[in-house]
Design a protein around this nucleic acid. Structure first.
Length: 450
RNA sequence: CGGGGCGUAGCGCAGUCUGGUAGCGCACCGGUUUUGGGAACCGGUGGUCGUUGGUUCGAAUCCAAUCGCCCCGACCA
């Protein structure tokens, strides 16, 4: 991709409304633009990241055995009357009327919708267990949207729903999602802490929040230091018993500040870690909360009808874009993890128009692309300083600087964004260094061909 | 929903107190010299000062209403 042909409206100065790092950098790097309070447009750079995060979330859901559907953003009020939430949900729900005066709403979540779909299809105990998810825009009319994309009113969420015959089976679904979440966040370069949580308005009695650690996070979490070291399981067989993994992760103390009481905390002070974090996922087991009022039951092997046991499992996909930036940036800009970087490498042509520089850049671009990397070539006429500043701002993991000075000695320069120093290498060595140093994620490579 | 703040050019701001018809930096356009960490100079383009109403000979400035946005708190993926 050539920068001269791309749409990357970077801002040199920070818009007045942006207070936190992720919001500032997302605006400055031309990733998003605000439409109204808590509602944003995604520009090409931001959209690439959003799509890559979505792809990783999707991949882990699929691995865990969930099946993707796509439900509408607009739902009929009757559905929500069935569950009793039409009145309970309050002003956060955006209610609208269609031309016939029929009451509709812009979905803040989809329990009712999925329950309706499933109850129409599932009649027998043989129809469960099932896991269905979708990745769809939600709208919650927050009183106070803030922090840019982190707490918008419109946001992209992955929500998965489980359907089981009994608690034991439902617990297995819960465990699948628990483990899938550990893996999802790790793939994005994040340290996520699962924490026992209040069940909130969705209700139920088994619930965990997943908090990613970031110094600028909005809530404080306390946990045993062992949790920081704990390794995310690799090569998980989702058909196997996952209870030991969940037990391992939940046996260690972790609590949000409202749940944490220093007086009763079982962890010795020396072992207690206090960190700021951002909630990016939440899983609930809620039993028959929706199936019972909405009449979702199946006939058991004994011929007796029984309420289907459900759970729901959310990931804030758009919030993760901000969350990753909060967890990974410096004064100059964003530092993307390889898996979600909008481009893996940025080639800076210091003298666009110079035949040698141009052809070296074109050659490198082609070779990087052949290796499966996404490449952005700055072929604009900007001055060197401005190009470097832009590259640092948009945070591509690698920068390759091609200039007449280096080319004279047959060299280009390679900079790892996270480390900062530049090293002079031959073009082939640079290629090697970058390609071998990039962890390509199977779910996000090739997502943006060309 | 309680408390606070702000709306003046694409972005950052001054001007408002004390009314006299809008300015600075960056960006943008043209030119010259430059060119390896956000160049310098010269010359330009761009704003019904959020909106509506009022006071006044005259309103960015005073008054009223209204809309929008941000921050702190309570609430949330």
């Amino acid at each position: 991709m050539r920068l001269s042909e791309f749409f990357l409206p970077v801002l040199r100065e920070t818009p007045n409304e942006a207070q936190i790092a992720s919001h500032r950098f997302m605006l400055r790097a031309g990733m998003i633009r605000q439409s109204s309070a808590g509602i944003y447009s995604w520009l090409p750079l931001g959209y690439r990241v959003l799509k890559k995060i979505e792809a990783i979330v999707r991949d882990e859901q699929n691995r865990a055995g969930a099946h993707e559907v796509l439900m509408p953003t607009i739902q009929p009020a009757e559905l929500w009357r069935e569950s009793g939430r039409y009145d309970d949900y309050g002003k956060e729900m955006l209610r609208i009327k269609d031309r016939h005066g029929r009451e509709m709403l812009y979905g803040p979540t989809n329990e009712e919708q999925i329950t309706e779909i499933f109850r129409a299809a599932a009649k027998s105990y043989r129809d469960v267990p099932k896991l269905l998810y979708h990745i769809q825009w939600k709208f919650r009319d927050e009183v106070r949207p803030r922090f840019g994309i982190m707490r918008g009113r419109e946001f992209l969420m992955k929500d998965c729903y489980s359907f089981d015959l009994d608690f034991e089976s439902s617990k297995r679904a819960y465990n699948k999602m628990f483990v899938a979440y550990l893996k999802t966040f790790e793939r994005m370069g994040l340290k996520a802490i699962p924490m026992a949580a209040d069940t909130g308005p969705i209700g139920g009695d088994l619930s965990h929040e997943f908090i990613i650690l970031a110094d600028t996070g909005e809530s404080e979490v306390f946990c045993h230091r062992d949790l920081m070291q704990m390794a995310v399981p690799q090569g998980v067989d989702y058909r196997a018993d996952l209870q030991p993994i969940v037990d391992e992760w939940t046996s260690v103390y972790a609590a949000a500040d409202e749940m944490h009481d220093p007086a009763t905390c079982p962890v010795a002070e020396a072992d207690l870690v206090s960190q700021r974090g951002i909630e990016v996922g939440h899983i609930f087991h809620f039993g028959s909360k929706y199936s019972k009022p909405m009449g979702l039951s199946v006939t058991g092997p004994d011929g007796v009808d029984t309420d289907v046991i459900m759970g729901s499992y959310g990931v804030g996909v758009s919030r993760l874009v901000g969350g990753i930036i909060e967890a990974s940036h410096d004064d100059d800009g964003i530092i993307w993890p390889d898996s979600v970087a909008p481009f893996h490498v940025g080639i800076v042509n210091l003298k666009a128009g110079d035949a040698d520089c141009d052809s070296m850049c074109a050659d490198l671009e082609q070779k990087f692309r052949n290796a499966g990397l996404d490449v952005l070539v700055d072929d604009t006429g900007e001055r060197a300083g401005a190009k470097f500043a832009t590259m640092d701002l948009i945070g591509l993991p690698w920068q390759v600087v091609v200039g007449p000075r280096g080319l004279k000695d047959g060299q280009v320069e390679v900079k790892r964004r996270s480390e900062g120093e530049r090293m002079a290498l031959t073009p082939n060595a640079a290629l090697d260094r970058v390609v071998s140093g990039t962890m390509l994620d199977p779910a996000t490579t090739g997502l943006f061909p060309g």
